[in-house]
C-alpha cells in the first residue's frame, strides 16, 4: 500500500472544493457535458509539453486556458450553442492529443498519476484552487444573474462578456487542478456528479453548493484512500465513489421534481 503526503491530500481536498463549486454553476449554465469535453483538451497540451521537454501540467494549463478563451470567443461570435462548440472542438483535441502522446504517458494523462507533488506544483495548485474558490464566493450573485438571464444581468450593470470569460478560466483552472488525481478523461466527472447529486438533495441554492462540495470532498478523500489502500488508480476510484453518492441520492425524496 502507498499513501500520499498530507500536503498532496490537502491539495486534492482544495481541488474538490473548487470542482464542487464551479460544477454547480456549470449545472446552472447547462454545460455539464462541456466539463467532460473541455477536460480532454488537456491531452494535446500534455503531449506537446512532453515533446518540448517541459512540465506536462504546464502544457495542460496552457491548452485548457487556450480552450476556455476559444469557447468564449466562439460563443460571442457565432450563434452555436456552447455544447456544440465544445463537443466539436474538444473531441478533436482528444484525437490530436492521442496522436501526440504515446504509451504510458497517454495513460497517465488520461487517468492521472497522484505521485508525490513537487514544491512548485503544490504552490501553484493551492494558488489556483484558492483563486477559483475566492472567485466563486465573490462573484456568486453576479454568476446567478448571468445564468438566470444574460439580459437581466446587463440591465443590472454586469459586464457579461468579462464575467463569462472569468468563469470559463476558473473552469479551466479547476480541470487543471484535478489532472494529477483524476486525469483528463475523468476530471470532468468530478465537476458533473457532485452537483447532479446536490440537485437531487438540496432545498435551496446555498445547500446545493454545500452538498456539491461535500460530495466532491467525500469522493476525493475516500476514493483516494481506497485507491491507495488497494493499489488502484485514484481517478476511477474517486469517480466511482461520487457515482455511488449520486445513485444513493436517487433513493431520496425528490425536492423539486428535477
Amino acid at each position: 500500500m502507498t499513501s500520499l503526503p498530507v500536503s498532496s491530500l490537502a491539495l486534492s481536498a482544495a481541488m474538490a472544493v473548487a470542482a464542487g463549486l464551479i460544477g454547480s454553476f456549470a449545472l446552472m449554465r447547462r454545460m455539464t457535458l462541456a466539463a467532460d469535453a473541455l477536460s480532454h483538451v488537456a491531452v494535446p497540451g500534455i503531449g506537446v509539453a512532453i515533446l518540448l521537454r517541459v512540465h506536462p501540467l504546464a502544457g495542460a494549463v496552457v491548452a485548457l486556458v487556450t480552450g476556455a478563451v476559444l469557447i468564449w470567443a466562439l460563443e460571442s461570435r457565432t450563434r452555436l450553442a456552447t455544447e456544440t462548440i465544445i463537443g466539436v472542438v474538444f473531441s478533436a483535441a482528444l484525437a490530436v492529443g492521442a496522436l501526440l502522446t504515446t504509451g504510458e504517458e497517454l495513460m497517465d494523462a488520461l487517468f492521472g498519476t497522484p505521485s508525490t507533488l513537487s514544491q512548485v506544483e503544490l504552490i501553484a495548485g493551492f494558488v489556483g484552487a484558492g483563486a477559483v474558490i475566492l472567485f466563486v464566493l465573490l462573484a456568486r450573485d453576479r454568476l446567478i444573474m448571468m445564468f438566470l438571464s444574460s439580459d437581466i444581468a446587463r440591465t443590472v450593470g454586469i459586464n457579461v462578456r468579462r464575467l463569462s470569460l472569468l468563469y470559463l478560466l476558473a473552469f479551466a483552472v479547476t480541470i487543471a487542478l484535478g489532472l494529477r488525481y483524476l486525469g483528463a478523461l475523468l476530471m470532468g466527472s468530478l465537476m458533473i456528479i457532485p452537483p447532479a447529486t446536490a440537485r437531487r438533495l438540496a432545498r435551496n441554492l446555498t445547500s446545493m453548493l454545500a452538498i456539491s462540495v461535500a460530495v466532491a470532498l467525500i469522493a476525493t478523500i475516500v476514493g483516494g484512500w481506497v485507491a491507495a489502500r488497494f493499489d488502484r488508480e485514484s481517478g476511477p476510484m474517486i469517480v466511482s465513489v461520487a457515482a455511488v453518492c449520486f445513485f444513493l441520492s436517487l433513493a431520496s425524496r425528490r425536492t423539486s421534481g428535477a
Binding site: 447547462r30 456568486r140 450573485d141 446567478i144 444573474m145 438566470l148 437581466i152 446536490a198 440537485r199 423539486s256
Partner: peptide
C-alpha cells in the same frame, strides 16, 4: 427588465429567496 424566457433551468433547487437576495445584494 422582465424577459419572456429565462436561461435558468427552473427545476434547479433555487428558491424565491435565492433570486431576490442575490438581486438585493447587487
Amino acid at each position: 427588465y422582465v424577459p419572456q424566457k429565462l436561461d435558468l433551468d427552473r427545476d434547479l433547487p433555487v428558491t424565491g429567496r435565492d433570486l431576490l437576495l442575490a438581486r438585493m445584494r447587487l
